[in-house]
Design a protein around this nucleic acid. Structure first.
Length: 429
RNA sequence: GUGGCUGUAGCUCAAAGGUUAGAGCGCCGGACUGUGGCUCCGGAGGCUGCGGGUUCAAGUCCCGUCAGCCACCCCA
């Protein structure tokens, strides 16, 4: 059909634009509460920035082309390479830890589905230069506070936490060798989506013996704090490897966010570059895709050609978040509406209406008026449709007295107000 | 990239292969030339996603294509 946005791209009508603005405003507000500073980079980058350094999946989904100068370029599919470049260029000068966030529009050419388009906006929060678990807790808390600020509690939203280091230790203890780890991760990642027989067949193909397969799946099925503690107790060193995760959970408890937190070793995350704690936020009903995903990626900045800084961060997209809000019937208040609608009774009143409107607008009052001569009824109808709380009616009688008739469109009561007192009256409420 | 389901007005949906494709909501106008919401009346708005085919006749059946949704894949 003609006259439609490209597949996977969106038109933002006023209602959608208002929702987007609401989400952005909450993102910025929460990020600044955590002391994060906003940065941004170009939406178009040199192709090599991604082909050299991103994973194969991302490269296969790039929007790429040659610009008029013969350069191979790509729309950014993720923010991390840009972040790495920017941090690298000033790494020596930046006070650590670095707390930066951005709201980039990201592009990936792939088949669209619900909650997944070819373009979306994503809150990226990254904390660089601090390897300890309080840094992980800090970004997780920020992600949770975004959801809290949007009106969601622990009954609606959950964060599921794991740690690559713990998973590796438990799998090694179960008898999985290093080369077999990635495939074992992949199997655990699918533990909720594929039947047990399929997972067992996957692992068997890997050359794992039956007891090892059973132990691997058992590790993936560790959910909840008690089973987690029990699994750690089985480790020879008593689970020391899990200290960061344990401390991170304790920090979230101390921040009163513990009710949101589930330890869940089936959380793996697809990206290969995660090195420690990983987490995902979900709606409690699990009817949507992950709201947010992130984790620790020490070593990635170096791999991208940046400085050797430990890092932890997450991405949170606007699409799933918008769906979650819609599903819960939460609608933003929208842009600040009109405070008054000016009504001219006769054509001769237009000049006065224009003068009043401009004076009120100069003092910050939001007003509208009919752009052509219309009956008073017509104008009031428009005022009501615009949800204006008051109408300011000016006719020959009022003009002669230097007053306007201010009608409360909720109660229908009217009062005469001198022209020079209008802004005081309209500013109220 | 693979497979399945679905495409009719701005939106939600009718129309058992048979006149000129309808309704509700929304939009515009009127009843109502100094008072809105309600009501009543009228109007605009459709190449039935697009292209082929079958048939005396296609919104309806068939094929293709595009788009949307869903499941894979992968991830955000």
């Amino acid at each position: 059909m003609q006259g439609q946005a490209l597949p996977g791209f969106r038109d933002f009508f006023p209602a959608e634009a208002a929702l987007r603005q609401h989400i952005f405003a909450v993102w910025r507000e929460v990020a600044s509460r955590y002391g994060f500073e906003e940065y941004d980079g170009p939406p178009l980058e040199a192709l090599e920035l991604y082909t050299d350094k991103s994973g194969e999946e991302i490269v296969g989904q790039l929007y790429e082309f040659e610009d008029r100068g013969g350069r191979r370029v790509a729309l950014r599919p993720e923010m991390t390479p840009t972040l790495a470049r920017m941090v690298a260029s000033r790494a020596q000068a930046l006070k650590k830890p670095i707390r930066w966030f951005a709201i980039p529009q990201l592009f990936r050419y792939e088949r669209q589905q619900r909650g997944r388009l070819r373009e979306h906006f994503q809150l990226n929060m990254d904390l660089l230069g601090e390897p300890g678990p309080l840094a992980d807790a800090e970004v997780i808390a920020a992600a949770l506070d975004v959801l809290r600020a949007l009106g969601f509690g622990p009954d609606a939203v959950r964060v599921r936490l794991s740690d690559r280091r713990v998973l590796r230790a438990l799998l090694a203890h179960a008898g999985v060798s290093d080369p077999q780890l990635p495939a074992a991760y992949a199997a655990i990642d699918k533990i909720d989506r594929e039947p047990r027989e399929v997972l067992e067949a996957r692992l068997a193909k890997l050359g794992l013996a039956e007891p090892v397969i059973a132990a691997t799946l058992a590790v993936g099925n560790v959910r909840g704090r008690e089973p987690f503690r029990a699994a750690l107790a089985s480790l020879p060193d008593g689970g020391e490897v899990a200290d960061p995760l344990v401390e991170c959970v304790a920090a979230l408890d101390a921040m009163q966010l513990g009710a949101f937190v589930d330890v869940d070793l089936s959380i793996v995350r697809g990206l290969a570059y995660y090195t420690g704690i990983v987490f995902e936020l979900f709606d409690a009903g699990r009817s949507l895709r992950a709201i947010c995903g992130g984790g620790r990626y020490d070593g990635l900045l170096t791999a991208l050609g940046g400085p050797d800084l430990p890092a932890v961060g997450f991405g949170m997209g606007d699409v799933v978040l918008g769906e979650l809000l819609a599903e819960r019937g939460i609608h933003p208040a929208g842009a600040a509406g009109l405070q008054a609608f000016l009504v001219g009774v006769t054509a001769e009143d237009t000049e006065t209406v224009l003068a009043l409107a401009h004076r009120l607008r100069d003092t910050g009052i939001r007003v509208e008026f009919a752009l052509k001569a219309q009956s008073v009824g017509k104008q009031l109808k428009l005022a009501a449709a615009r949800n204006a709380p008051r109408a300011v009616i000016v006719g020959p009688d009022e003009r002669a007295a230097g007053e306007a008739l201010v009608r409360d469109l909720g109660t229908g009561t009217e009062a005469r107000v001198a022209f020079d007192r209008l802004n005081d009256v309209l500013a109220q409420q």
